[in-house]
Structure formats: structure tokens, C-alpha cells
Design a protein around this nucleic acid. Structure first.
Length: 273
DNA sequence: ATGGCTTACAAAGTAAGA
């Protein structure tokens, strides 16, 4: 089986429906994982997706905040939508791709809490919630590895930029939420819990700057280029060597009324296993 | 000058993003 998969924090799917359509028609991913759809399931604009051949939609939405959606033109089957930190917030959905086929696999779509402004668990409950969420993911992922050595893909806005080259200035961001050492440690603990492979860095050398988010506040995002890599595509070791290409769709940051995140697109060929 | 903007909202200012 071959398929392509994209992840994109859309920052409101309803206000950017035309951009989602443009992306799908231009890049034709088989599966699209959206985060921050910012709508309840009943308000999700399914018609547009159906009209261009994306007939399979699995939602974990929430009014106004957060929310994730996994959309596909291949058959998918809902596995679960888990509340990792008991907050009641919609931040995860898992689907099985190609259910019933021998090379089926599960795609986990995540929106990890941003964590607020102050990188201090005692002073800032949102930062504590973010670290709790990452720890809960590690427990889940570690438990998973003991009983299941299967094919898993984990994508989404993980809201942590782990490498020095994942931010515009390692030194200036050491105390900025998303790149603090404690967050990077939590992310590395999660990665190690199932020996997850960082697909983006498998294709783009770690020496090279790699960003997927640029603030709305820059006058010219490309000129100042103060970006961070907050969005990720990971796979389990069972899928090693199956990720055949990786693209970071920077042009989407220049589209009219853009999201502050850009899409990341990967291709997989399971006959490479 | 990493918040300068942008979103949702029982709609004007508030909360949130990162």
C-alpha cells in the first residue's frame, strides 16, 4: 500500500475552508489531519470535503477551541478519541487506515496544549497541563509498545520544537514556551517510549533549520523568519524505511488569510518494509 | 519589537494562541 498523509494546524477550519480546498486540490494527500478546527462536530463543514472526493471524515471537535479532524479519500475507521489529561478538551483522534487489509495501520492525530506564557509549572497552570499531557502520552505510548509492535503514525501540532535548528534562535528561545529544556526532555521521553522515528528529520538533516509555524505578528514572516517547528510526523520502527518523501508546504503561509502553521506532507510505501 | 496579529464568542471586550 502507498499513501500520502498531511498534517496542518488550520486555526479554524470554517474561516479557512477555501485554503483547505486549495491545499487538497493542489497536493492531493490521501489523508489530511487537521488541528484547531475550532468547531463542534455538528458545525464541521463536511460538504466541501465530500464534494472533492474526501468521503471519510472522523471528528473530535469542540465549540470555539481546539478540536481535531482526520479526513481521507481512502477508507478509514475510527479507533478512539482519547482525553489524555482528563481536561475534557478535544485534542486527539485515532483512525485505522485501510481497515481489513493486511497492511492496515493506525494514525494518531494530536493537538498538544500550547502551555501559556510562563514556563513554570507552579506559576502557570497551562504549562503544568502541557507537561501533564506529554507525560500521559508517554505512558500511553510506552504501554502500547509492550503489547503492540504494529504500524503506528503519530502526527500533529505537538507544540514543542525540540532541536536547536527547530527554532530561529536556540539561545533566545531557551526560556520561551515550546523550546524550554523541560519540554524538550518530555518530548524526548515520549519519543523514546516507543522508539518513534522523526520522519521530518529523517528527510531534512538536523543541521538545517526547519520551521512549520511563524507568528502572525511579524510584518514580513519570510524576511524576519522567526519560525519554529511545532508540527511533527512520527512513525514506529515497524514502518522504518517506508517514508519515501517529505514536503514542508511553505507557500501556504503566503496564501490569503493564512493559518500561522503550514502543512507538512509525507508519502509512505509499505512495500518498502 | 516574541508580540507588532488573529480567532471565536448568547458580539464588546475578552480569552487564547505560541
Amino acid at each position: 500500500m502507498k499513501f500520502s498523509l498531511a498534517t496542518w494546524n488550520i486555526n479554524s477550519v470554517r474561516s479557512r475552508l477555501n485554503l483547505v480546498k486549495r491545499f487538497l486540490q493542489t497536493y492531493q494527500p490521501d489523508i489530511l489531519c487537521l488541528q484547531e478546527i475550532k468547531c463542534a462536530n455538528g458545525s464541521f463543514p463536511s460538504e466541501m470535503f465530500h464534494s472533492i472526493g474526501y468521503n471519510h471524515i472522523e471528528l473530535n471537535g469542540q465549540k470555539a477551541y481546539h478540536g481535531v479532524a482526520t479526513i481521507s479519500r481512502m477508507p478509514i475507521e475510527r479507533v478512539e478519541a482519547r482525553d489524555f489529561n482528563g481536561s475534557g478538551e478535544a485534542r486527539h483522534i485515532a483512525v485505522r487506515v485501510a481497515p481489513g487489509e493486511a497492511d492496515n495501520l493506525v494514525v494518531h492525530n494530536f493537538y498538544v496544549p500550547a502551555g501559556g506564557d510562563v514556563p513554570d509549572e507552579k506559576a502557570n497552570p497551562k504549562f503544568a497541563q502541557k507537561l501533564d499531557y506529554l507525560r500521559a502520552m508517554s505512558r500511553w505510548s510506552g504501554g502500547h509498545s509492550r503489547k503492540d509492535t504494529g504500524r503506528l503514525i503519530l502526527v500533529g501540532d505537538l507544540n514543542v520544537a525540540p532541536l536547536e535548528t527547530d527554532v530561529w534562535s536556540h539561545k533566545q528561545l531557551l526560556k520561551v514556551v515550546s523550546h524550554t529544556p523541560i519540554e524538550v526532555d518530555h518530548m524526548e521521553e515520549l519519543r523514546r517510549s516507543h522508539d518513534w522515528i522523526d520522519v521530518m528529520r529523517q528527510h531534512i538533516p538536523p543541521e538545517e533549520n526547519l520551521f512549520t509555524w511563524w507568528s502572525y505578528r511579524a510584518r514580513d514572516w519570510r524576511a524576519s523568519n522567526r519560525g519554529r517547528r511545532l508540527d511533527h510526523i512520527w512513525m514506529t520502527p515497524a514502518l522504518d524505511r517506508t517514508a519515501t518523501s517529505l514536503r514542508v508546504i511553505e507557500e501556504a503561509r503566503d496564501w490569503e488569510k493564512p493559518s500561522d502553521h503550514i502543512p507538512v506532507l509525507a508519502e509512505f510505501d509499505l512495500s518498502q518494509e
